[in-house]
Computed example of a mutant assay.
Amino acid sequence: MTDLLQLPDLAPVVAEQPDPLLFATVSGAHLYGFPSRDSDVDLRGVHLLPVDALIGLREPEETRSETWDRDGVEMDLVTHDLRKFVRLMLRRNGYVLEQLLSPLVVHTTALHAELAALAPDVVTTHHAHHYRGFACTQWRLFEKNAELKPLLYTFRTLLTGIHLMRSGEVVAHLPTLLDTVGEAPAYLPELIAAKAEAEHGPATGVDPARLAEDVEVLHGALDAAQRASRLPDSPSGAHDALHALVVRARLHGPQG
């Protein structure tokens, strides 16, 4: 797992935000376990809008996004207001769960811990659709440009989905998934090592026909894992608890 000590000082980023952040974590290639020397830093989190931003005539900034350069490193920050983030949690969105549960924590609060504790209650068998769809998108991109990055994203998302269906645990770190999902191709560590050298480069050393076959095998494994999964079909009672958390945060601030 990427060490935060290897990244630029991210505390000033948190302090510069116009509204309090409930959490900020590192996502993207650093979280997935295959950052390159020139990878940007993907920061994701939740901000808390004040009540007056929600009850007036102006549209609230439910999502904020900005990109900038800090000490030669490209930074990308995307945050959602708490209510929008929680709604995304309830829509079988794997991205937000990965961001919420990322071990690469830049900023945290008690409400972050509460959200993370509720995350298992929103995971359903339908989260397999998220990972299946993302893998298909990345595979089409790989077929178009033959770059290593979308290929690794394809394998990462499929393995994350398989592991989630089997265990109920959100794991986005590809090197860890290699040890937990038996169907993971043996050549993936070599591809991860190649990705470390450059963010944008061709996938070499593996026959394209074998890649296509292995991706198809993982799609089959994801389908089978979803059918056999003991996860529920809908969030198990998390809606009321999340609603109460949003109301409490809005009334009492980021410390809840």
Results as ranks from 00 to 15, higher is better:
Gly256Pro: 04
Ala241Phe: 01
Arg92Cys: 05
Pro18Arg: 05
Arg83Pro: 01
Thr154Tyr: 04
Trp139Ser: 00
Leu178Cys: 12
Glu169Pro: 06
Arg250Tyr: 04
Leu159Trp: 02
Ser102Asp: 02
Ala146Lys: 11
Leu97Cys: 03
Leu82Met: 14
Thr125Asn: 01
Ile162Gly: 00
Ala24Met: 15
Ser27Phe: 14
Thr67Arg: 15
Asp71Leu: 04
Pro103Asp: 10
Gly94Lys: 07
Glu216Tyr: 01
His112Phe: 05
Val206Leu: 12
Ala117Ile: 03
Glu74Pro: 02
Gly33Thr: 14
Glu169Met: 12
His127Tyr: 09
Ala128Gly: 09
Pro189Glu: 15
Ser39Tyr: 13
Ala241Gly: 01
Thr137Ala: 02
Leu54Pro: 07
Ala198Asp: 09
Tyr187Pro: 06
Met75Pro: 03
His163Val: 01
Leu242Val: 03
Leu88Lys: 09
Ser236Gln: 15
Ala221Asn: 00
Tyr187Phe: 14
Leu164Ile: 09
Thr125Trp: 03
Pro120Gln: 13
Leu164Ala: 07
Glu143Phe: 01
Gly253Arg: 13
Ser27Gln: 14
Glu169His: 15
Thr137His: 07
Gly161Trp: 03
Ser27Arg: 08
Leu245Ile: 08
Glu213Tyr: 03
Asp179Met: 02
Glu143Cys: 11
Val171Thr: 12
His130Asp: 00
Tyr131Lys: 04
Ser167Glu: 14
Ala119Ser: 10
Glu66Tyr: 05
Leu88Ser: 02
Glu98Val: 04
Leu188Asn: 12
Ile55Ser: 00
Gln138Glu: 10
Leu151Asp: 03
Tyr32Arg: 15
Thr157Val: 04
Val13Leu: 10
Asp233Glu: 10
Ala117Gln: 12
Gly237Asp: 09
Arg156His: 12
Pro254Val: 13
Leu100Gly: 11
Met1Leu: 14
Glu213Ala: 13
Val217Phe: 00
Ile55His: 00
Ser27Asn: 14
Asp214Ala: 04
Ala117Glu: 14
Ala209Thr: 04
Arg91Ser: 02
His80Ile: 02
Lys149Gln: 07
Ala196Leu: 06
Ala24His: 05
Leu118Gly: 01
Leu222Thr: 01
Leu82Trp: 08
Leu159Glu: 02
Leu77Thr: 11
Leu101Asn: 12
Ala228His: 13
Leu174Thr: 05
Val215Met: 01
His112Gln: 07
Val96His: 06
His112Ile: 06
Arg248Lys: 13
Gly220Trp: 01
Phe23Pro: 07
Leu49Trp: 07
Glu114Thr: 08
Arg230Tyr: 05
Asp207Ala: 08
Pro12Glu: 09
Val106Leu: 11
Val123Glu: 07
Pro202Ala: 11
Ala128Pro: 01
Pro254Gln: 15
Ala224Asp: 03
Leu231Asn: 15
His239Glu: 15
Pro103Tyr: 10
Pro189Val: 13
Asp3Asn: 15
Pro60Ser: 06
Met165Gly: 00
Tyr131Gly: 02
Ala238Gln: 03
Leu104Phe: 08
Leu82Arg: 04
Leu164Arg: 06
Ala196Pro: 03
Glu213Arg: 09
Leu177Gln: 06
Ser27Ile: 06
Pro20Trp: 09
Thr79Trp: 13
Leu43Cys: 10
Asp52Glu: 14
Pro202Met: 14
Leu88Gln: 03
Asp19Gly: 00
Asn93Tyr: 05
Tyr153Leu: 12
Asp71Arg: 11
